[in-house]
Design a protein around this nucleic acid. Structure first.
Length: 695
DNA sequence: CCACCTCGAGTTCC
DNA sequence: CTCGAGGTGG
């Protein structure tokens, strides 16, 4: 025999050491032995138990995935009901909550209450029962009175102790807490599911994933899900008196081996609670798990007892919720937007819904593939999310709520605006209206792009006005903008107001309208003085954005040289390949484009031309710089301009080719990436100093 | 041919 | 911000 000790002693030792290592790894987040050593010990224990089945105990780490699939879950009645919490959505409601406590305890204003405060995890509430220090049963909340026995599934969760640590625990202990799925585990699981090519289903969100995972009949499936647990209260306790304060009880639970959130804290009075709410709110997006608010619990357990319950919720606790980041709503319609390049993008028109602090009515569906993947149909109930970013997205369809007689959505075959065929090139994701500039939608978008701030910068000329001017026939092409008269604009404005039924026809209104029109005419005139790169960008040549426009302007120095360039010559320009060269050459070869350019020149557009510049020069020649965060002494555009004037290339994404990153305040992912790649980071002061020195 | 880097284009709400 | 696709360099 390998070990001189008796098998029973060796098994007990292995169990103790494995459980201890597991606690350090999953609860304390501070592993003390290498994974390989853990695996070796686990294997040894498995072999030992295989040889001596009588040595298997319920708290053995080999028993985390043991039981065979069950057919259904047994009912478990909770000795002490698992209650839900009342919700507060505003500071006032929190103040009311504290006010009610004060009133019921008949205490005056001079008394301030201490609260135990903690994040509210977005998961699934469960109850864990320990007898003589060993985990014997776990149950879901169910209706609060009785839930389902999910013991086998809970055993697979590594942060749930199978045996309590220490010795001062009660003979019977029920611990309540939340099973959740950490974001990283959720992402990783879905990545794996995506790679499986549809064989493994994607999880919708961490919350549903946690709930779904616990309700698996086969614990082997649950074991594959990255679940975790946090304890937040106790239920039945027998044999030992717990501390007099909730916060002290939580510390006890931590000693006994339960994971208790490190964000748990105590707060004094309404102000303390609200400050905690604010603090957690700012951390929310950065947390490794989803939370939907914070919970305030009166810390004094005697006072809790005196307050009791109101209906099914305790009077001594409340959940202060963040505005929901996910909501369900109904898809009222699916429409098509036609972009500048003709791209036909489907968008869901939603029944207005309040998500993440704003009312959402539209959500892009990106393309036909995305619609097919989600199988979104008109009339469907969908889950809408407004995640850390701003743009709402349709996460999934709630199939249970799909009305009868719906049909899968299909990309229309013809453009809803101009009737031209919508075509999707082989291998392309986007479908496009083939109408070109004869499509009114594309024309409006092209003119809108031309007038945009980063292009010709015509202040005050928005999409709506362009649409109206086109509809009325005042504008057909970009050159027509420079032919607009004051009367044209006033006529357009009058008709728009009439149609919208807004402005009354008074002398004062007339004067305001005239002023508006004069300003717009002035803005249009002002735009005539521009730069070659802005002009090139504003033409809207496919694949020619700001960066390419700048490269072309530098390389050729003047417009005529560019127009005369062959495809081969264009390919010489940095970052221009055969495809872009073809687009550019084709654009200038088309007579109507040449005419439009001539008309614009005739209208008085001017820019300074220069000698071709084919080598970068300046103090930062050859350097690639990325700007991130908020700068205080100058705008990001100004910083970009100054850096480029010194020969730097200012790029939008950090890579190992980046020379250095300039980080302002509240810098986000780009700064993280820079640190990750070990790229030099400048703060604003250093940039300012450098710019001063090289002026 | 592949991996990596950029750029372009589309997007929502106030 | 994110996705898709073009360009480039190994």
């Amino acid at each position: 025999m390998k070990h001189a000790t008796a098998p029973a002693d060796r098994a007990a030792e292995l169990r103790a050491r494995l459980n201890d290592a597991s606690h350090r790894y999953h609860v304390l987040d501070a592993p003390d032995i290498p994974d390989a050593e853990y695996d070796a010990m686990l294997r040894e224990l498995e072999e030992l138990e295989a040889a001596h089945p009588e040595l298997i105990t319920p708290d053995s780490p080999t028993q985390r995935v043991g039981a065979a699939p069950s057919r259904e879950f047994a009912e478990v009645r909770h000795a002490i009901p698992m209650l839900s919490l009342a919700n507060a959505f505003s500071d006032e409601e929190v103040a009311d909550f504290v006010g009610r406590i004060r009133k019921q305890l008949k205490l005056d204003e001079s008394v301030v209450f201490d609260f135990s405060v903690e994040p509210k995890f977005d998961g699934l509430a469960i109850s864990l029962r320990y007898e003589d220090g060993v985990f014997v049963q776990g149950a879901t909340r169910g209706d609060g009175e009785a839930g389902e026995d999910v013991t086998a599934n809970l055993r697979t969760i590594k942060s749930i102790p199978l045996r309590l640590r220490g010795t001062d625990w009660p003979r019977v202990l029920e611990v309540r807490g939340e099973v959740y799925m950490p974001r990283a585990g959720f992402e990783k699981y879905n990545e794996m599911a995506r790679e499986s090519g549809g064989k493994i289903k994607l999880l919708i969100n961490p919350r549903n994933a946690a709930a779904g995972s616990l309700r698996q009949l086969d614990p082997r499936i649950t074991a594959k899900r990255p679940l975790a647990f946090y304890a937040y209260s106790v239920g039945e306790v027998e044999g030992v008196d717990l501390p007099a304060a909730h916060s002290a009880t939580m510390r006890k639970l931590r000693d006994w081996g339960f994971p208790v959130s490190t964000l748990i804290d105590t707060a004094t009075g309404v102000e303390g609670c609200l400050a905690y709410f604010k603090r957690i709110g700012t951390q929310r997006d950065a947390l490794p798990f989803d939370i939907d608010g914070v919970v305030y619990k009166l810390d004094d357990l005697a006072a809790q007892g005196a307050l009791g319950f109101a209906g099914r919720t305790p009077r001594w606790a409340i959940a202060h919720k963040f505005p929901a980041q996910e909501q369900t709503t109904v898809v009222e319609d699916i429409i098509i937007n036609i972009g500048r390049t003709g791209a036909a993008t489907p968008a869901a028109k939603l029944k207005p819904v309040f998500v993440g602090g704003v009312t959402v009515t539209n959500a892009t569906l990106h393309n036909a593939d995305q619609v097919a993947r989600l199988d979104v149909r008109i009339g469907d109930t969908v889950i809408v999310r407004r995640a850390g970013d701003v743009i709402p997205e349709v996460v999934s369809v709630v199939l249970d709520k799909r009305p009868a007689h719906t049909r899968p959505w299909k990309m229309p075959t013809h453009c809803p605006v101009c009737g031209s065929a919508i075509v999707r090139e082989e291998g392309e994701v986007v479908a496009r209206c083939s109408g070109g500039l004869s499509c009114a939608a594309q024309r409006v978008q092209a003119i809108f792009h031309f007038a945009a701030r980063r292009a010709m910068d015509i202040d005050g000329l928005g999409e709506r006005y362009i649409e109206d001017l086109c509809d009325l026939g005042y504008v057909h092409s970009v050159a027509d903008l420079y032919k607009l008269s004051l009367d044209n604009l006033l006529d357009m404005k009058r008709r728009a107001d009439e149609r919208d039924g807004t402005t009354p026809e008074t002398v004062k209104a007339g004067k305001i309208a005239t002023k508006w029109a004069e300003n717009l005419i002035a803005a249009i005139a002002h735009s005539k003085r521009t730069t070659l790169e802005r002009f090139l960008y504003s033409l809207g040549i496919s694949d020619v954005g700001e960066a390419t426009a700048k490269a072309l302007a530098r390389w050729f120095g003047g417009l005529d040289a560019l127009i005369a360039a062959s495809e081969d010559e264009l390919t010489q320009v940095p970052d221009v390949g055969p495809i872009m060269a073809a687009h550019i050459a084709t654009f200038f070869a088309e007579s109507h484009n040449r005419e439009a350019i001539e008309q614009l020149r005739a209208a008085g557009l001017v820019w300074t031309e220069s000698e071709p510049q084919r080598e970068a020069q300046g103090a930062l020649a050859g350097k690639t710089v990325v700007l991130t965060g908020t700068l205080t002494t100058l705008t990001r555009d100004e910083a970009k301009e100054k850096l480029e004037a010194l020969g730097a290339k200012v790029s939008g994404s950090v890579s190992k080719k980046t020379s250095f990153v300039v980080a302002g305040s509240e810098a986000g992912s780009k700064l993280d990436k820079a640190n990750e790649l070990g790229i030099e980071v400048w703060d604003e002061a250093r940039l300012a100093e450098f710019l001063r020195a090289h002026e």
